[in-house]
Amino acid sequence: MPEADPDPLETRIADYLCHRIPGADDMQVSALARIHGGISQETFRFNAKWSEYGKPEVKDLILRRAPEAGVVSSEHGVEFAIYEALANSSVPVPAAHFLEADPAWLDRPFFIMDMVPGRPGMIYGTDDPFDGKSERVGRDFWRHLGTLAARDTAALRNSGLRSGDTSDRFWQAELDYWEATLDQDEDIVEPIVRGAIRWLRANPPPEPAHPAIVHGDYRVGNFLFLPDGSISAILDWEMCHIGDPLEDIAWALDPLWSMDRYFPLDEGLATWEQGSGTTIDREALDWWRLFTAVKTSALWTTSEKSFEEGHNREIVLALTVLRAGPFHRKVILDLMEQRGAMG
């Protein structure tokens, strides 16, 4: 006898929402559609209508579900914890509603949050991803990052964030983490990346003025903006941790998605300094720029393994690996040449 098909995802989401919302009745989930929301989580948008103690309610929501395997090996709850911690702060994030670890509901852990108005700026295929509003987008981009850097990390001490209980040597914790990722996932070693790691260890940066919440993937493509250019939400916090705020600046300036294509670099960094109350150590920032190329290389390595072993067959993953892997090895070579490595 064939196995019965599971209920459609809409029905299962509706059952879950009824379970979580007190007094909810007559739950209807519609317009469910998979959307591209990063390659580390499966992202769906949907509309929910229900009656709550007799009062009609309607919401556009986002479901973020863990993939079977993917780019980022992190605790699924990290992103949810951040959204809760930053709720109603001056750093715009979606309101997060429910975090669910029990796979009985939707096969894998997931969380549900508000759908925020706005659209992401695509990094490929256009010279103007911000519809002529790059001045406002760029200013908001750096201002929000500066604000994040100034924020007290105490509220996140027990949230499970990496380095949440560390007070120094953040650079080493991050480098150890990503080198271990390479050790685990690399099939054939990349000597370029390993050479960069040795250089980074031999030339450590100074400690930051104070620990900061590091987004971990702060870049064009990971925020939404409105028609007037204001940023309505900063998304994709799965790689968030406590660390050196220069890490996020360096990440934002990676040449694959650099914000300085659309907004003058010096003005951006000055905006960040104003928001954070901290002066940027340019030499230390250079250390983090090389680190960024190492971290991206590790991410592409994990993606490669996931696709190769069939754990994640998101086709965009394969494209990213084929293009971004060589791209970031070239970035490392250029940065090492600037450091005199080639004589």
Binding site: A202, L333, G343
Partner: peptide, 29 residues
Amino acid sequence: VEQQEGEEARRIDQSIWRALRDIEAPRAP
């Protein structure tokens, strides 16, 4: 060679980086 002192070690170190650059170039899609 990074741990070895002397000009010959530096020469080899640099020649490895240059070779890595040459090897990488045709790997780009």
